[in-house]
Design a protein around this nucleic acid. Structure first.
Length: 105
DNA sequence: GGTTTGACCCTAA
DNA sequence: ATTAGGGCCAAAC
């Protein structure tokens, strides 16, 4: 299994209503400095994928997506639909990690 | 196999 | 507190 597949496995485990950070996913994969590669993996997903890519955000809870087919407004909308409160400030979207961060027991 | 590319993150100032 | 700069690393060429 390649790194991308491993990323998809972890992301699939993020429960609905929670979010994880790129760095967190990388850390789970014992590759703490590969946060950017996690983003790369998600960017490679097909549009009709069933992977919950919208549940991954930046370290500060900010939506950092850059993808023509998936604007950040879409990610914000999908998260809102899952019951997550998304805050818009200055053309950016933020999630309160104190509330919504996925914590592994 | 060297080079390029960033849905990132940490550090220093 | 806020920001610019640079390191990171797997894939695609």
């Amino acid at each position: 299994m390649n790194f991308y597949q491993a990323v998809y496995q972890v992301v699939s485990k993020i429960p609905k209503g929670k979010v994880a950070t790129y760095g967190q996913v990388a850390t789970i994969l014992s590759s703490a400095r590969s946060a950017q590669v996690v983003g790369w993996a998600l960017r490679a997903l097909p549009e009709d994928s069933n992977i919950p890519w919208q549940r991954v955000v930046g370290r500060q809870g900010r939506i950092t997506i850059i993808h023509p087919r998936a604007p950040k407004e879409l990610q914000a909308k999908l998260l809102t639909r899952e019951g997550i409160k998304v805050e818009k400030k200055e053309n950016n979207f933020f999630i309160d990690l104190n509330i919504y961060l996925w914590r592994i027991k």
